[in-house]
Amino acid sequence: MALSRNIVSAVPLPRECSVIDHYPRTDLADAYSIELPPGVSQSPEELARFMFAHAPGWSRALMGLRDLLVAGLGLKTVAQLTATTPEQAAQRIAFFKIYSRRAGEIVLGEDDKHLDFRLSLLCPPAPRGRRLTVSTVVHCHNRLGRGYLFVIAPFHRPIVRAYLRRAARVGWPGATPG
């Protein structure tokens, strides 16, 4: 039974996901969902912070390689995006900017000269809860963006799945009383 909670499923973008119609045109849109065990936090922000704090080592290595390759193109690197002060940390999760928070959802992302993307972590309140769905939408601005997306899309999908599986294996944070 516990093993089933480590299964990550590709799902359609949930209708209640606030990024579903964020861009007039999307160049990538996907969503992955995982069951959450009883007693786990239902806070999308807490789940996001936990998930990104427990990144698989191989994904960090890929991001390092990505940074080496794109630095010469003038694209933002992880180091440039990472918070350095407590005020910045409150507005970022890992290297993602927080765009919005609402009950059951947090939206992260980044805008750059080649593409913009949004990442929704949706955890509807009980009784519909018990699942975390991570949805990604990407809008490319130019050929550089489309080329970049072509190269990274095959890595994006397994990385999202790996982040969700790893957080489940490590053990999601518990719900805080109150």
Rank of each mutant, 00 (worst) to 15 (best):
I7P: 02
I7F: 06
V8E: 04
S9T: 07
S9V: 02
V11D: 10
P14N: 11
P14W: 11
R15Y: 03
C17W: 07
I20Q: 15
D21K: 12
D21S: 13
Y23K: 06
R25L: 10
R25Y: 08
L28C: 07
L28P: 04
S33G: 05
I34E: 03
I34H: 01
E35Y: 02
L36T: 09
P37K: 06
E46Y: 01
E46T: 14
A48V: 08
R49P: 04
F52G: 06
A53T: 09
A53D: 13
G57D: 12
G57Q: 13
W58T: 05
R60A: 05
R60Y: 01
L62S: 10
L62Q: 08
G64K: 13
L65F: 15
R66S: 04
D67I: 03
G74W: 04
G74A: 04
K76F: 00
T77G: 03
Q80D: 15
L81H: 06
L81T: 09
T82W: 00
T85N: 03
P86I: 05
P86S: 04
Q88C: 06
Q91P: 10
I93M: 08
F95G: 07
K97V: 05
I98A: 10
I98L: 07
Y99T: 11
A103S: 14
I106C: 09
I106K: 12
L108E: 06
D111L: 02
D112G: 13
L115D: 08
L115A: 07
D116S: 15
F117S: 03
F117P: 08
F117Q: 05
F117W: 15
L119R: 08
C123D: 02
P124A: 13
P125W: 00
P125D: 14
A126Q: 12
A126E: 12
R130H: 08
R131A: 02
L132N: 00
V134N: 00
T136V: 12
V137D: 10
C140G: 07
C140T: 15
H141W: 05
N142T: 12
G145T: 01
R146D: 07
G147Y: 10
Y148D: 05
F150S: 13
V151T: 02
V151K: 09
H156T: 01
A162H: 01
L164Q: 09
L164D: 07
A167K: 02
A168K: 09
A168C: 11
G171F: 08
G171E: 13
G174Q: 13
T176N: 09
P177C: 06
